[in-house]
Design a protein around this nucleic acid. Structure first.
Lengths: 145, 145
DNA sequence: CTTATATGTTTACCTAGGTAAATAATTACG
DNA sequence: CGTAATTATTTACCTAGGTAAACATATAAG
């Protein structure tokens, strides 16, 4: 039998383990896992403003500012001014675009590896259970948005 | 249907959400969630060396050095030299001991709240599935415990 | 048109995780 | 015994998350 604190302890440990190993794995591409996440959504969605990105990832704006600065420095993305001169539009560089395919395969390999002890159904179930965690806490949830 | 990347994305987001809200919640006690974790295991296990702590939490030694420094500064713990003068033994202060009961109730309340949409069985199942994540990548799992 | 408000990004400062290398004390070995 | 190896902690430097407040540009209101 487990108590709830153990559940959250385990949750934390697994996520830390995942990101640690993912970072090790991505090192060969000179990339961090948080940076990969950004590359991935840019690949899926095309150019996005910074606000698009942090809203999508549900992190705060300064986090994205910083990470994008590093990514620009290492040649993954460029920032372009939008028509609205407040906003910056983020584009993948050609160099990034060339490498992404290989990296994506790499990541899939790693994720595959990390879930190897779970059947497809179990992964589905894990997803379903996680989805319920922490959401819509109090009866009448008006987080309409 | 979900793909594996979505699973990990969700996992990351929920953990971030949890620790963010936990931090908000603990602010009333002038505490951070990582610091709470340390207080909790000291309460359970009695005095421990730093190495005991980081091995238990599965983080690296410098992480614990830093967090304990902050916790000493804010009066939660004290460091005492062991017989082996390399090691430092970490003790709860009396002040911490007085407050811990109330805080623990607080935390249980919060964790309860966070899992309110999951039945006891679902929590059990979530625990079971998480346990399988990333462990013993190759072949047979013997995590008897 | 000018001022007030809202929006997008950044800066400054905080916690928390990581690695690599330094330091101090202990144990093991020739 | 004295040196080599090991162990416990710390320091320096990195990424990544957070908040609060500053800044710049747009939009709305009087």
């Amino acid at each position: 039998m487990m108590n709830r604190s153990e559940l959250f302890h385990l949750l934390n440990q697994k996520v830390r383990l995942f990101s640690k190993e993912m970072n090790d794995y991505l090192q060969q591409h000179n990339l961090y896992s948080s940076q990969w996440t950004i590359l991935y959504i840019l690949l899926e969605n095309g150019p996005m403003t910074q606000t698009d990105i942090w809203k999508y990832l549900q992190v705060e704006a300064p986090t994205i500012t910083r990470t994008l600065t590093r990514m620009e420095k290492s040649g993954w993305i460029i920032k372009k001014l939008g028509n609205d001169k407040r906003e910056k539009i983020i584009l993948l560089t050609d160099e990034a675009r060339e490498k992404l395919d290989l990296i994506q395969q790499s990541v899939q390999q790693f994720e595959n590896d990390f879930t190897t002890n779970l059947t497809t159904n179990e992964q589905q179930e894990l997803y379903r259970l996680l989805k319920k965690l922490g959401s819509e806490r109090n009866a009448n949830t008006n987080e309409s948005e």
